[in-house]
């Protein structure tokens, strides 16, 4: 579904992604973890071209990601993204946030778009907030709206960039629940997160990145029980002890 081969990226002179090889099959759930500055966010932002890579190839559902505008648009409509700081549009209602892209990109009629939006708002369990503005919702509710907004485009894969890092502890659970339900329904997901409980429960594979490289990847049981690389062990010991 998503194939990354030999990916290199520089920010100016800084080499931030070094020779990344990653394959994600349809329906697979990948969790990417690592210390800050390891390039995890940059990696998934390259997948939907929010960042440009300088070397290597990224292929999404058969289409190679290049400078071609048409390819980029096609890929963006098939890959949804959820951000750490939600990035909801504050001047639009929750419903309008969700119907915006289907109407303007998929050219749906307003009626169809609204039906789809209500369906997904139901799925993330906040259908009653449809006419509120983002500023009137709690952080957990806003993030769930952000997930619904991405889902309204009926993407084939979803990217999550630290979706719970900006939330108060008591709201993390509600967002994780939605993500778990999404995973169990078969969505292909790449999730950058520190929530190891989520990784253990749902991930098919955990990928550890440090300093721009993929150090280790393994199914969660193996990853947490027998980390092979020293840096992985170091990281796990910091993250798993309170």
């Amino acid at each position: 579904m998503i194939e990354i081969r030999g990916l290199h990226k520089w920010f100016g002179a800084l080499h931030v992604l070094k020779d990344i090889d990653l394959s994600v099959a349809t329906g697979e759930r990948i969790v990417v973890c690592g210390p800050s500055g390891s390039g995890k966010s940059t990696l998934i932002r390259c997948i939907n071209r929010l960042e440009q890579h300088q070397r290597g190839t990224i292929t999404v559902d058969g289409t190679e990601l290049s400078g071609d505008v048409k390819d980029i648009e096609k890929i963006r409509s098939e890959v949804g993204m959820v951000f750490q700081h939600f990035n909801l549009f504050p001047h639009l209602t929750v419903l309008q946030n969700c119907t915006l892209a289907p109407v303007w990109v998929r050219k749906m009629t307003a009626g169809n778009a609204e039906a789809t939006a209500r369906h997904y708002l139901e799925r993330v369990r906040i259908p009653e907030q449809a006419d509120k503005y983002p500023g009137q919702l709690s952080g957990g509710q806003q993030q769930r709206v952000a997930i619904a907004r991405a889902l309204c485009m009926e993407p084939k894969a979803m990217l999550f960039d630290e979706p719970t890092s900006a939330l108060d502890p008591e709201m993390i659970a509600e967002v994780l629940d939605v993500m778990i339900e999404l995973a169990e329904s078969g969505m292909t997901m790449i999730v950058v997160t520190h929530e190891m409980g989520f990784a253990r429960r749902v991930a098919d594979r955990v990928v550890f990145m440090d300093n721009g490289e993929i150090i280790e990847q393994a199914p969660p049981d193996e990853f947490f029980a027998n980390p092979r690389h020293e840096r992985t062990r170091e990281f796990l010991s910091q993250i798993l002890s309170h």
Partner: peptide, 13 residues
Amino acid sequence: CGQTDAARSLGLP
């Protein structure tokens, strides 16, 4: 800039 990020990731031109 998160606003434009979100809009771009939704595929808006």
